[in-house]
Amino acid sequence: MGKIINKKDIKHIAKLAELKYSDAEIDKITDQLDKIINHITKIGQADTSNIVPTSHVLEITNVYREDKVRISFTREESFKNAPLEDEDGFKVPKID
């Protein structure tokens, strides 16, 4: 099995996923992800010419409903689990 994933890839993917791996963790995750991705490349062997992709198993279409006002969560309920709030909304650190 050739290497597909290297440390540079891990850093790039982690950035996309808003995750962070310490230097101590990075060798292990690189090795694990490489093994897993190597395994899943197996799907490349299947012949899918003229095959339509499946996103959902059921043939579903958009579900429309009347745009009617109905009772939803109160302001208090919506903020109940907020880590930090002030009276106007969810409070976060400086947006960079």
Partner: peptide, 13 residues
């Protein structure tokens, strides 16, 4: 990966 997997999913179905 993702698009291919969705097509192979169709084969399995």
């Amino acid at each position: 990966y993702y698009d291919k997997a969705k097509r192979v999913r169709t084969l399995i179905i």
